[in-house]
């Protein structure tokens, strides 16, 4: 059965391009995608994850304020009893910090994986397959690694 993932741009960020491409790529890869679109609050992510019985929440942020927008998100998921995979990706800090430092900070906020804005949709899909233990066909594995 197809796994359901929640997708959205957090905070007051209105960058729609990345998430649109990701939605299409996830759908094409066989996921059930709930795309919450831009300007999505923490509440909306949590409600949607619970309502859809989702297995993962993928958050996008491109305007540099992700750290504020994501404060306490993991804790609220835990309060809601949602033991769910969480990814975040995009331009996660204003200015160009060392990305490893950014990754560390967002791991501390509780995200399972942290991606930069250069990430291919295929990389996120490969990660989801691994984390959600979905079998990959040979052909797909080849494409993902290519």
């Amino acid at each position: 059965m197809a796994k359901t993932v929640i997708l959205g741009v957090i905070g007051s960020d209105a960058h729609v391009v990345g998430i649109t491409i990701l939605e299409q790529a996830l759908s094409a890869a066989g996921f059930d995608v709930v795309n919450l679109g831009v300007q999505t609050s923490q509440e909306d992510f949590i409600t949607a994850a619970r309502d859809a019985d989702a297995e993962a929440v993928l958050i996008s942020s491109l305007y540099g304020h992700a750290e504020q927008d994501c404060q306490g998100f993991r804790e609220r998921l835990d309060e809601a009893g949602l033991d769910i995979v969480t990814y975040i990706g995009g331009n996660l800090a204003v200015g160009q910090d060392d990305f490893e430092e950014t990754r560390r900070r967002f791991r501390e906020l509780g995200f399972d994986r942290v991606f930069d804005s250069e990430t291919d949709p295929e990389d996120a899909i490969a990660a989801l397959r691994q984390d959600l233990q979905i079998a990959t066909t040979e052909a797909e594995r080849h494409r993902v690694e290519g």
Binding site: G18, I21, Q24, A25, A28, D120, P121
Partner: peptide, 13 residues
Amino acid sequence: GRDQTFRMVADDV
């Protein structure tokens, strides 16, 4: 030398 991929869309943007 690649398949039509979502990456093209992102690259074009």
